[in-house]
């Protein structure tokens, strides 16, 4: 299985090296490149726009201070998201909104992970707009651990290896956590579809 993390491309690595040497303009270019992806991620994680804006700025300031520790072997995006992720978790912990549920990665794989016969799917019955609303609700309701892994995979298009580095977990955990997150999101779909059909 190919699980290598792509290296930072040469142009980007050059920007990072210049930033390490104190070139603020080079760092500003990196900020310009990543400000929206980082903001998108922390906004979906925190759910509060003002907080996400502060977190985004905080992420880049922390990254700047940590620049001497960056090595060309590291993928800059992954490294940056790692900082954003840690900063976001700190904020969520302070808000006491993180529900650190005992994690089920090591549990025996129960019925939730068995491929069941497909239930009637809501996607044919619901319009796109409703589906997006359901997805947003699902994301909001998912445990943080599942939400972050889904966002990094589905929105940021990270490989399992990149997600593992970003979240500081093993690739096997990424694999199982992502599957559980998808199952949970789909269950939300079904739940909301049930509510809607009851109305």
């Amino acid at each position: 299985m190919e699980c290598m993390i792509p290296r930072t491309d040469d142009a980007e690595a050059e920007l990072v090296v210049r930033a390490q040497a104190g070139d603020h303009r080079a760092f500003a270019l990196l900020v310009g490149r990543y400000q929206d992806p980082v903001f998108r991620f922390v906004l979906r994680m925190s759910g509060i726009r003002d907080e996400a804006m502060d977190l985004t700025q905080d992420t880049f300031l922390k990254a700047y201070r940590a620049l001497p520790a960056w090595r060309p072997e590291a993928h800059f995006r992954t490294w940056l998201f790692q900082i954003a992720h840690n900063a976001t978790l700190d904020v969520l912990r302070r808000r006491q909104r993180v529900e650190f549920v005992p994690f089920a990665d090591d549990e025996p794989e129960g019925e939730i992970l068995a491929v069941t016969d497909p239930a009637p799917t809501p996607e044919q019955a619901l319009a796109d707009r409703q589906r997006i609303g359901m997805l947003e609700r699902a994301l909001r309701d998912l445990p943080v651990e599942q939400r972050e892994v889904l966002l990094l995979r589905e929105v940021e298009d990270m490989s399992y290896a990149e997600i593992a580095v970003t979240l500081g977990i093993g690739e096997g955990t990424v694999k199982s956590r992502l599957a559980r997150a998808r199952v949970a999101a789909l269950a939300h779909y079904r739940g909301h579809a049930g509510e809607n059909s009851d109305e």
Binding site: A28, V31, D36, R40, Q57, L61
Partner: peptide, 18 residues
């Protein structure tokens, strides 16, 4: 997920950071 609205910061953070 692809159809989720793409949130943007809405201002040039690079200038602020710089």
């Amino acid at each position: 997920f692809e159809r989720l609205p793409a949130a943007t910061l809405g201002f040039d953070l690079a200038g602020v950071i710089e």
